[in-house]
Each structure stands twice: as structure tokens, then as C-alpha cells.
Amino acid sequence: MLPSPIQVIEALIMEFPILIQHSVITLTEAFIGLLAGISLGFLAAVLMDQFDGLYKALYPLMVLTQTIPTVAIAPLLVLWFGYEMAPKVILIVITTFFPIAVGLLNGFKSADKDSMNMLRAMGAGRWQIFRHIKFPGAMSEFFAGVRIAASYAVVGAVISEWLGGFKGLGVYMTRVKQAFSFDKMFAVIFLISVISLLLMKGVDFLQKKCMPWEKEN
């Protein structure tokens, strides 16, 4: 039942071409979901920051959505949206939206009051204050959110594939599990970890590129 590391590596090499095909599907879902989640989270954070009423109305709801276990809504999404990509992407959007929106909101809300006053005294409007102070000031929080969201996205894609689909690492996982091929099972778990790690490294790289002032210190 517990394969040796060598068996796992052998399985990984043997199955590699097939695993790549499945990975492409899973990664596509993860990317689309992540991008949509980031965009939506960004939009929500900006609106909630600018309009206090919206913040008070939406924030508790947003927290509430995070208390619903992913595994519980995934089957519903399959029932509603079928076996194609749509339910997977939606699930990823639901899970990645939160860390982005909350991270950004915290960043916006903790913007330096004195700097904002200075810009106001210079005659800056709301939008200029956002552009010059709030947005760049929230970059580290934003990237912290993206890093979490990136790993959520991969895991979310795999979970939603378990529950129904034709291709993808999650589908592959259920198949090898049913065939009791534990070596392959471990191989795919290993692969998913590697993909998540690479994605997080990618986010770190992006952050360094977008925040050149950080490394200068």
C-alpha cells in the first residue's frame, strides 16, 4: 500500500507524458480561475475601499463565503455547470478571490494618513491619492495574497476534478486510486506539490520585478 520512493520516481518517469497532458488542463483551469479571482478581488477591494457603505455591506458576506468548505460546494457546481471547465474555474475564483480582496483592502486601509493629507494639500483628488499612495502602498499585501491564491488555485482545480471531469490531474488521481496504483498516486501528489512551489516562486519573481525598491534596502 505504501510504495517506496524509487517506485514513485519510476512511476513519475513512466507516466510523465500522460501527466504532462493532464497538467496542462489543470494548469489552464488554475490560471483562468486565478486571473479571474485576482481581477474580481481587486475590483471588490477598490470598490469597498472607496465606498464605505459597500465595505460594511459586503465584508461580512465575504468572510461568510470562506466558512463554506470547498469540497461541499464543488459537487453542486458540477451539477449546475457540467463536467467541463466552467465549474472548476468558478470554484477557483471563489477560493482565490478572498485572499486577494482581503490583502488589498488591508493594504489600502493602512495607507499613511500623513502622506494622503500631503497629497490632498497638493490638490490631489480621490483617484490620484489612490494611484500614488494607496495602490503602490498595498503592493506587498497584494503579492502576499497572490502567493496564497496561487497555491489555492492548483489545489482547487484538483479537488474540482475529483468530483467530475474528463481530463486533468484530479481525474488522473481518481483513476489511479481506483486501480490501486499507489506509486502513481504518490507520483501525482509529488507533481502537484512541485507545480504549486513553482507557481509561488513565479509570484516571488514577479514581486521582485514589480517592487524594485524592496531589494535596494
Partner: peptide, 15 residues
């Protein structure tokens, strides 16, 4: 928007 000011804190934007 008419008077500019400077404080004890430099308020230079770190980024």
C-alpha cells in the same frame, strides 16, 4: 492645493 508644506516626517514615498 494652494500652499505646499513640509513636515518633520519627510513623507517621501518609499516606492
Amino acid at each position: 492645493g494652494n500652499v505646499s508644506y513640509m513636515l518633520q516626517k519627510d513623507l517621501l514615498l518609499p516606492y
